[in-house]
Amino acid sequence: MPRIGMEPLRRKALVDATLRTIGQQGSLDVTMSEIAREAGVSPALAHHYFGSKQQLLVATIRSLLARLRTDAVAALENVETPRERLSAIIRVSFQADQFAPETVAAWLAFYVEAQRSEEVRRLLIIYARRLRSNLLDSLERLCPPDDAARIAEGVAAMIDGLYIRQSLRSAPIGSTASVTLTEDYLDLQLRPFLRQDEPGTLAPNPSHRRGE
């Protein structure tokens, strides 16, 4: 008989093992047996908890998204200005655990699966909309809505693009360099909407925010 309290631990172990196994192989062409072996449990137990590999894949994506959301909430707790909030969002996107080679490979495998699975596609759309919403919330305080939407799309595209570049392990781009590149793009896009109050500081230009 399974010990009480073991199910959540084994479910998490299987989700973590799925991420590692997919990341190591670079595709979703893995078996429940391989995942179970990585998690240190039997294939029968993996099927008992998740039913099928597809259900386990969905649970793994949900786990990634939940972790990303938790990290984003924590990162935004102690920031005040819209520009600081944007930097926090960028840093979370490239933090070490999310930008590890195996995690990046798993993300890309999930995007491929989204072409075939409506449920996986829906989860990834939720991620994309959440990122865009978080960016827009701060950008709309710094520039007109149309420009905020354009810049948000650009920042999101840079984040996605740098994940793809990271997957090319022959020439990976590190987390710090990725943050710097995205910040440089954001600074360039925001420059017309900010005024220089004093050396080293930037403040929103009220006339641009009102579209005047």
Rank of each mutant, 00 (worst) to 15 (best):
T18Y: 14
L19A: 13
L19I: 12
L19N: 07
L19F: 04
L19E: 08
R20V: 10
R20A: 06
T21G: 04
I22S: 00
I22P: 00
I22L: 12
I22N: 02
G23L: 08
G23F: 07
Q24S: 14
Q24E: 15
G26H: 09
G26E: 11
G26T: 11
S27V: 06
S27M: 08
S27E: 04
S27C: 13
L28P: 01
V30R: 07
V30H: 06
V30D: 05
T31E: 07
M32H: 00
S33G: 11
S33R: 14
S33N: 13
S33P: 00
S33C: 04
E34K: 12
E34D: 13
E34Q: 15
E34H: 05
I35R: 05
I35N: 09
A36M: 05
R37L: 11
R37H: 13
R37N: 09
R37C: 04
R37P: 00
R37A: 14
R37S: 13
E38C: 03
E38G: 01
E38S: 08
A39Y: 03
A39P: 02
A39D: 01
A39G: 01
G40V: 08
G40A: 04
G40S: 05
G40I: 06
G40N: 04
S42A: 13
S42M: 04
S42I: 03
S42T: 15
S42D: 12
P43W: 00
P43M: 01
P43T: 01
A44L: 07
A44C: 01
A44H: 06
L45A: 10
L45Y: 13
L45P: 00
L45F: 07
A46H: 05
A46V: 05
H47E: 02
H47V: 06
H48V: 03
H48T: 06
H48W: 09
H48D: 01
H48P: 02
Y49T: 03
Y49D: 02
Y49S: 01
Y49H: 15
F50G: 11
F50Y: 15
F50A: 12
F50T: 12
F50D: 11
F50K: 13
G51D: 11
G51W: 12
G51L: 10
G51T: 11
S52Y: 06
S52I: 07
S52G: 08
S52L: 06
K53V: 02
Q54A: 13
Q55E: 15
Q55S: 15
L56W: 07
L56S: 09
L56V: 09
L56H: 09
L56A: 09
L57W: 05
L57D: 12
L57I: 15
L57Y: 09
L57N: 10
L57R: 10
V58T: 10
A59G: 11
A59L: 07
